[in-house]
């Protein structure tokens, strides 16, 4: 039993750090019958304590910085952070805005970026597949003591 146990069972906690709700609706769309992320074992959970993946949207407003760090720290290891949308990846149209602390990788370590404004549900599912690959990589590093 190693990290590959995560492969077919990624539980996702979604946090909105000031996004316009566009990305959040695309995340919900990924769970609808048309895309059905649950067939890969992906489940949206209500508490960061249950999560394997932190799905972050939005450019991180000042108020949300502490909360984002807190949610990240509440997650049990091993964990992966996936950023959904341009705002979270680079700041997007809010780049260098006076009221922002972001982008997200200035605050917590980010593993996967899903660009788009908003990204399509396929792209979000693809991002989660990349998260599996990253965990597999972690497993290989562990085996070779890297």
């Amino acid at each position: 039993m190693g990290l590959d146990a995560l492969k077919r069972s990624l539980w996702v906690f979604h946090i909105n750090t000031g996004s316009c709700n566009g990305c959040d609706i695309e995340i919900i769309a990924a769970l609808t019958p048309r895309y059905d992320a649950e067939r890969f074992g992906v489940k949206l959970v209500g508490s960061p304590r249950h999560a394997d993946v932190l799905l972050v949207t939005g450019p991180v407003t000042r108020k949300m910085k502490e909360r984002l760090i807190r949610a990240y720290e509440q997650m049990p290891e091993p964990k992966i952070v996936v950023v959904v949308g341009n705002c979270g990846s680079t700041g997007g149209v809010f780049y260098e805005s006076y009221n922002l602390e972001g982008p997200i990788d200035k605050i917590i370590p980010v593993d996967i970026y899903v660009p788009g404004c908003p990204p399509r549900p396929e792209a979000i599912i693809h991002g989660l597949a990349k998260a599996w690959e990253k965990l597999e990589g972690m497993k290989k590093c562990k085996q070779q003591n890297l």
Partner: peptide
């Protein structure tokens, strides 16, 4: 079964 197996390798906070 997959979920339970995964939860057992997770950190217990």
């Amino acid at each position: 079964f997959l979920d339970i197996k995964k939860l057992f390798i997770k950190e217990n906070i």
